[in-house]
Design a protein around this nucleic acid. Structure first.
Lengths: 219, 219
DNA sequence: GTACACCGAGAGCAGTGCTCTCGAATCCGA
DNA sequence: TCGGATTCGAGAGCACTGCTCTCGGTGTAC
């Protein structure tokens, strides 16, 4: 049975997070101020601490939501034709999400401000993204490939953990492609491409197809 | 002729930047405080503003130095054997620099905190890195390749600007590899690989060779 | 219905970036 | 060499931050 106090608590927690997200979008993570959030909500700043023990915890909550939002966006991409198209559509969806949610993107793929990122809480939602890529790759039936013993061991631990049928060589290539995808997006959003490949759409599409080929997707 | 005042000015400017760098390394860009720098230098905080008009300008100075340091580290890699080895050595040098200078790496490849990054000042030193990769690629004599018209146009503007003999298709692949390199490094340093490819050494070496092959380096 | 846990508000602390003013040091031209 | 102009350092001050503590009121559970 949920008491009135409990209901009020979850509601206020959500309201604080929502107001914080608005500030994040408007001004960026750096400018996000707990006191300003409290002000906009008409409450004392000290009251916010009843719900989030610190500013970093509030940011962590936003990080988790951002990962979930991105993960959901990628998982929502349906296979229409071949696996390569599916793969490229998913890359495009990632880019679209990043461009539509710059501040959230910066939050999760920018420098980790809060010492070391809160581990277990964010790892699970964060893993949805690479998992989405892995699932697509599975459908493309990529071949194995040469990998060093060290890498094979690392990758095998991952493939076992997530329960994929992918061979170690293929899984390693997917991980590289995963980093490739967000390397491109970070470069575009963080201004490294200014003066060269900006906007990065054409280069991005090129890279998506190349990555699909490199992973070894067929069909 | 340099007056005593001018000499004092360049010395103090350097001293402030050096002290700021120490704080950056010790605590990260987020914790870098102008007042603390002034305190450690035994001067009033207001005096620092005679040398750097704002905290962001100080950070920008550190960013420029970091780009130059990274660029120099990559340019210092000598070709010992084949071009592929040269390429991989350069990738390894980039990773070594990143691991040895985490805070500087975060500063330049993390989320741009200062609104929009100061443009012209940082662009020149920042371009040393991709240029180093381009120079190596030139020695590997990569073939051209299919690129969309849009991409070809963008890439041609860049190749003309930097004066390279690389065909558009090859130059485009180098740019993708450039983003790939720092995508991997950012993932490793920013904790995305925690629980999977951590440490990322083996995956990194794998990716370096794959990138060399994808660019089409021979010899 | 009473004890207890919870919660909001306010004051307060230590710190921040940045501005302004004022007196002193320095430079440069006459 | 001297005097006006420029530059500089120090200190006070403003508005803001994250966070803590205390205190009085409120909902909950026994």
């Amino acid at each position: 049975m949920t008491t009135a106090r409990e209901r009020a608590r979850v509601e206020l927690t959500a309201a604080i997070k929502e107001q914080a997200r608005k500030q994040l979008v408007a001004e960026g993570a750096h400018q996000l101020s707990l006191r300003a959030v409290a002000r906009d909500l008409g409450m004392a700043s000290s009251a916010v601490y009843r719900y989030f023990p610190s500013r970093d915890e509030l940011l962590t909550a936003l990080i988790i939501d951002a990962y979930d939002s991105l993960g959901a966006a990628l998982e929502a991409v349906e296979r229409r034709a071949g696996v390569v198209e599916w793969w490229c559509d998913t890359w495009a969806a990632a880019r679209a999400w990043a461009l539509d949610n710059r501040r959230e993107y910066e939050l999760i793929f920018g420098s980790p401000v809060q010492g070391y990122r809160a581990p277990q809480d964010t790892v699970a939602p964060a893993s949805r993204v690479p998992l989405a890529l892995l699932r697509i790759a599975e459908a493309g039936d990529p071949p194995d490939g040469e990998v060093s013993d060290e890498l094979r061991e690392q990758v095998l631990r991952v493939t076992e953990l997530v329960g994929t049928s992918l061979a170690p060589g293929a899984a390693a290539r997917v991980m590289v492609a995963w980093a490739q995808l967000f390397g491109l997006l970070s470069f575009e959003l963080f201004g490294q491409f200014v003066g060269s490949a900006d906007p990065a759409g054409p280069l991005f599409e090129h890279a998506a197809r190349a990555a699909a080929a490199h992973v070894g997707l067929t069909g």
